[in-house]
Write a protein that binds this DNA or RNA. Sequence first.
RNA 1: GGGCCUGUAGCUCAGGUGGUUAGAGCGCACGGCUGAUAACCGUGAGGCGGAUGGUUCGAGUCCAUCCAGGCCCA
Length: 914
Amino acid sequence: MNYKETIQLPHTDFPMRANLPEKESEILQDWARIQVYKCIQESRKDSEPYIFHDGPPYANGHIHMGTAFNRILKDIIVKYKTMAGYKVPFIPGWDCHGMPIEREVIKELREKGQNLSNEELRESCKKFAQKFVGIQKEEFTRLGVFGEWDNPYITMDPEYEAKVIDIFRVLVENGYVYRDKRPVHWCTSCKTALAEAELEYKEIGSPSIYVKFKTQNPKVSIFIWTTTPWTLPANVAVALNPKLRYDFVKVGSETLIIASDLKDAVLEKLGIKDYEIEKSVAGEELEGMTYKHPLFDKECKVILSTFVSKESGTGCVHIAPGHGYEDYQVGLLYKLPVISPVDESGCFTDEVSEFKGKYVFDADKHIIEALKKKGTLVHNEEFSHSYPHCWRCKNPLIFRATPQWFLRIDHKNLRERCVNEIENVHWIPRWSKERILHNILDRPDWCLSRQRRWGIPIPVLYCKGCGAPVLDTKVIEQARDIIKKEGSIGWFTHPVKDFIKDSCRECGNKEFVKEKDIFDVWFDSGASWTVIKSQGLFPADLYCEGVDHHRGWFQHSFLLSMTNEEKSCFKSVLTHGLILDKEMKKMSKSLGNVISPMSIIEKQGADILRLYFSALDYTCDVPFDPDGLESAVTAYRRIRNTFKFLLGNLYDFETKLPYDKLLELDRLILHRLALLIKKVKQGYENFEFYKVYHSIYNYCTLDLSKFYLDILKDRLYTYGKNSPGRRSAQTVLHETLLALVKLVAPIIPFTAEEVWQHITLNSQPSTHNSQSVHLELLPFANPEWIDEKLAKDYELIEAVRDDVLLALESARNKKLIGNTLEAKVTLWTEDKDTRDFLQQKLPNLPNIFIVSQVNIDKVPEMSHLKKVDAFVDKAEGKRCERCWIWSKDVGLSSEYPTLCSKCVRVLKEDNYER
RNA sequence: GGGCCUGUAGCUCAGGUGGUUAGAGCGCACGGCUGAUAACCGUGAGGCGGAUGGUUCGAGUCCAUCCAGGCCCA
């Protein structure tokens, strides 16, 4: 007889091979069919809400690894919080305005030779953004991310734009907004400002001049170096580095002040060999020293700044806040005037009568000439360096101060209030608080205006008569209402009279022009909390983005919330590091190290990528390593096979046994399961998903596969189908399965769902009948399962088991045994308590060691090192053909001569027809 | 140059308040099983703890400096 027919081998349709790319698509269809997100919201409609506000990704391309990572983290949180019983509405957003899209669109149109009007350009940008919102929506869905995909917030939607305008209205009402000059990159041929990303750097030759700025004592000069002589008319200060030393170098009858570290290089260039050093002082001692302006009759001061470098020049930097960003920054600290006597085509205005009308680059030689006349020019040569050019017309750019709109950070103690409010926010990880704090403390006023076209217009007007700006809430409200109906294009299409009825307060003129500038995109996205506010869900419980957002979205959202709501828009902020390549280098097209998340998903599946990400401690930057992805595949297989084994052995499970009827080993596993549940929940709660991953994975591998399940096979397969031993095991397998599938669901939602579907099909006694595992609550760590005494007993048993395994391995190497069931194990210890303990557990030990016999007796070789010695010998008796265990009672039954008495009894008492 | 962060086996992670030979899993090598089978089980080899100084009887764990890498700013 073939006794294989008489044992209960695992049986399940759950496939070993996942074939995730295909399976995940099927599950996505299932989810769409049952509208899983809606079902979840419906089932939680009376639950406590957890508001997780989504930071909008930029809609200008396919998602990259970083976006995928961010989305997956957020989704794990959404799914966890949902399963923890909260109502978690998740409204995804997209950031649609801004330079990158505008630039891309202009590039495309230029290639087609088209030159579009403002309206047409904006329409093209809108279509461009819409296209990628659609693409990204699909890609995010494919990752298994749940959310209101039908109802996202989009920063170019009219309603959203109106909200942004309204934020601005409140700022104006409260006096935060002012207008001032600030230097920007300016193209004199296109007559337009350019953004950082529009610059192209090229090598060009510039004049390199060394100039004496005479101090009160005409014999003593501060010695400066510049490559832009035309900026000298706008000079207002000289900056020294407070930490550098400065030498007073006497050359003939004159003295030059030069940084010690640069002195040799400078003097060599000038061919000066005879000199003496009169004295040497620290830069900070020279603060406030006055000097005579190089061209005009006025006095200026020496200031200090750490940006002054000792790498080039003289260590004395000519400062023109109207023509350089660093100059501007340091100028703000010293309250220096921003002088920029250059018009939009790059010609000097009548502020500098001497050079009026001259194009700045042409003016260089005239200025050099003027310096020569004054006798302050020391050296002039051609100098080749990298210089920014316009990406459109390829001409060199200048820095030019232009009027901009600002938000005053210190108005109404805003900065101070922010610093205080930071304390009331939970920053995860902790250092993230330090970072935002420094960013807020150090930041200059927020420049709100951009000289671009694709964005939300700044709703202010200018009087045609006197040029005075009209910053009026009535105008803004009017703009808001029109924009709410027609989108921000309304600002450009409506005539001015639709926005204002009054006449100019300054001059009485009745004609106005509209502002052309648009808002900084951080103003757009920083206003996004209005989306949750309008649904009565303010403030958010959580914001979660990459570290770079301490200067980006976190900060700008926070600022606007503090100005408009007087409190933070988030209760806690979770920061993650960035995804780098295997070598910890940034992924970039130029390095050719970019890996697309979608390529991984197509080949291996979203669950693999999700599992991989979950294993990383993302509080710092993390590498994306394709080899690491392979270990995620391995881990996935282990988890999957664990599920397959659990499902396979529950196909006929009907009756749960009560806890007190369970066998000892089974109760032990419930004890450990309770601990696992606690640990995993704690991991999720702290957003430490790598702890979740490691706990679950180790549980599957160590507690289940290598220990419990291996031991259980005998009981599951060979015991009577309805025997208490088998039902006890199944009861625990069932608990384990239900717990595991839920614990794992936030991380690998597709596989969990697949398992869930098989539970529904195969094991009736489960109490669930919900359509998706994601509707379930996380398992409960039943305190009844905790049994410390049992856990302690098994610590010892497992330690003995380790010794037994070593002895078995050694016997195997001696070819004494192959399968461990061929072994008889003899244990001995001199410790009587331990011996008594083992004696008491003896009936269970063969099973736990997966050997045929265990006895306690003196062993031939005593090690005296181990607490318990294990000795392996060939098992006694014969091998039972059914359960493969060796025993002396094989052959006692005439009916079943090749079976042991246990199997004989099983065959006689149980019915094996399937 | 400034602010913040990171650096334990090839990889992902453990290592309360400093204390005996630094732990897991994966990977690797070797072996077993053939009733989880493109699965499962066992054994083994891998770490000068980024570097150097210091505090201490004693440091991966505390301090300083440096090196490497990242983000943001300049």
